[in-house]
C-alpha cells in the first residue's frame, strides 16, 4: 500500500497545555474521559463529572447570562488506550445564555476509539451557543452524538470545525420541542489522506412555528471520504415550520468521495422546507482570472477554498473566536500548520 500523505497532522506533545489567549475563557480538561478539575462554580454555572468519574456536566442556572466562554478540552493520550464510551450533559436553564467551546484532541499515535454522547437541554427562551473543534490523530476514531432538546423560544447554535482525525462521526439528534424554538447547525470539514468524516443529522420539528437551518461544507483531498445524511422531520401538527438544509463539497482530487443524502419527512401541510446538496471542483475560470492578475496558482486555489469554508466560519458569532478558527483553517489549508506560541502542541490557537 502506498504511503498516505496528509497536508497536516497534529504533532505529538510531551506535555499538553492549551492557553487559548482569548479573554474571558474558562477552561476545563477532560482527560481520557475524566473531568480533571474538581467541581467548579462561577456566575451561576456549575461544572461537575457527569456520572461516576466519567464525562462532564455543565449546568447553567435559569436566567444566568454567562459572559465567559466555557472551553472543554477533551483529550486522549497513551495513559489509557482502551475503548471509551461516556456521556456528558449540558443544561442551559430557562432565560439563560451560555457559550461553549468544545475541543477534542488525541496526544499520542495510539489507536483510540471514543464514543461520546453530549446531551443538551436548552430551556425556555434560553440560548446555547456551541463551537466544536475537532483535531485528532491519524488513528483516532471518535463518535459523537449531540442529542439536544430545545424548549419554547430556545435557541441552539452549533458550529462544528472538523480539522483532522482518522474517522470522525458527528451525529446530531435535535428535537425542537417548544414553539418558536430555533436551531442553527453548521459544519465545515477538511479532510485529506484517507480520513473519513460523517455527519449524520436528524432535526425533528415537533411543534408549530420553529425554525432550523443547516449548512455543512467540506473540502476533500486525496482519498478522503465524507458523508452527509441530513434528515428533517416535520410532525403532523408542526405547521409554519421553516427548515432549510444545504450541503456543499469541494473535491480537490479525483479519488476523494462524498455521499450526500438529504431527506425530508414532512407530515404537516403548511411548511417551508428546502434541501440542496452539491459536489464540485475548483472553478477553473476563476483560477485563470486570478492568475491573470499575478496571483500564483497555489494561492488562487487556496483563496477559493478559504472563500468556500468561510461561509460556515462566518456563522461563528464571537469575532475573536471566528478569526482564530479562520486562521486555523487557513494554516491547515496552506499546509503550514506550525505550532503556535501559546499551545504546546495542537495548533489550535
Amino acid at each position: 500500500m502506498s504511503k498516505i500523505e496528509y497536508k497536516y497532522t497534529p504533532v505529538l506533545p510531551d506535555e499538553f497545555r492549551c492557553k487559548v489567549p482569548l479573554p474571558g475563557i474558562f477552561q476545563a480538561v477532560v482527560h481520557n474521559g475524566e473531568l480533571s478539575k474538581e467541581r467548579h462554580k462561577s456566575n451561576g454555572v456549575t461544572l461537575s463529572p457527569y456520572s461516576g468519574n466519567m464525562g462532564y456536566r455543565i449546568d447553567s442556572m435559569p436566567n444566568t447570562i454567562s459572559e465567559d466562554i466555557i472551553q472543554v478540552i477533551s483529550f486522549r493520550d497513551a495513559s489509557d488506550t482502551s475503548d471509551l464510551e461516556y456521556s456528558n450533559k449540558i443544561v442551559v436553564g430557562e432565560g439563560g445564555e451560555l457559550s461553549l467551546l468544545l475541543c477534542s484532541h488525541t496526544l499520542s499515535l495510539d489507536s483510540f476509539n471514543t464514543s461520546e454522547r453530549i446531551e443538551i437541554e436548552v430551556g425556555e427562551g434560553a440560548v446555547a451557543d456551541m463551537v466544536v473543534m475537532q483535531n485528532e490523530h491519524n488513528n483516532s476514531n471518535h463518535h459523537f452524538l449531540f442529542d439536544a432538546n430545545i424548549a419554547a423560544s430556545g435557541f441552539l447554535r452549533i458550529n462544528v470545525v472538523t480539522l483532522h482525525g482518522a474517522q470522525l462521526d458527528n451525529n446530531f439528534k435535535i428535537a425542537l420541542k417548544g414553539e418558536e424554538s430555533r436551531c442553527d447547525l453548521n459544519g465545515v470539514y477538511l479532510a485529506d489522506g484517507s480520513q473519513k468524516i460523517n455527519n449524520n443529522i436528524t432535526i425533528s420539528h415537533l411543534v408549530p412555528n420553529c425554525l432550523s437551518n443547516q449548512l455543512f461544507k467540506g473540502i476533500l483531498d486525496d482519498s478522503a471520504v465524507a458523508s452527509f445524511t441530513g434528515r428533517i422531520v416535520v410532525a403532523k401538527d408542526a405547521q409554519k415550520t421553516e427548515a432549510f438544509q444545504a450541503n456543499h463539497n469541494l473535491l480537490l482530487s479525483s479519488s476523494a468521495k462524498v455521499y450526500a443524502q438529504p431527506q425530508l419527512e414532512i407530515y404537516a401541510d403548511d411548511v417551508k422546507c428546502s434541501h440542496g446538496a452539491t459536489s464540485g471542483r475548483l472553478d477553473e475560470e476563476a483560477l485563470f482570472y486570478m492568475r491573470s492578475r499575478g496571483i500564483g496558482y497555489d494561492e488562487a486555489k487556496l483563496q477559493q477554498q478559504l472563500a468556500f469554508a468561510n461561509d460556515v466560519l462566518q456563522k461563528i458569532p464571537n469575532e475573536r473566536q471566528r478569526e482564530r478558527l479562520r486562521n486555523l483553517v487557513e494554516s491547515r489549508l496552506r499546509g503550514e500548520f506550525g505550532k503556535c506560541d501559546n499551545c504546546s502542541m495542537m495548533n489550535c490557537c
Binding site: D283, E285, A286, F288, Y289, M290, S292, R293, G294, I295, G296, E299, Q303, Q304, L306, A307, F308, N310, D311
Partner: peptide, 26 residues
C-alpha cells in the same frame, strides 16, 4: 494585463482582498 470580455465572478473573495493579493504578489 488582460481585460476580460466576460469578467469572472469569484464569490467569497472580496475585491479589496483580491486586489491586495494581486498587488502584493507583484
Amino acid at each position: 494585463f488582460l481585460g476580460f470580455q466576460y469578467p469572472v465572478e469569484i464569490p467569497g473573495v472580496s475585491n479589496v482582498n483580491f486586489m491586495k493579493s494581486a498587488i502584493n504578489e507583484q
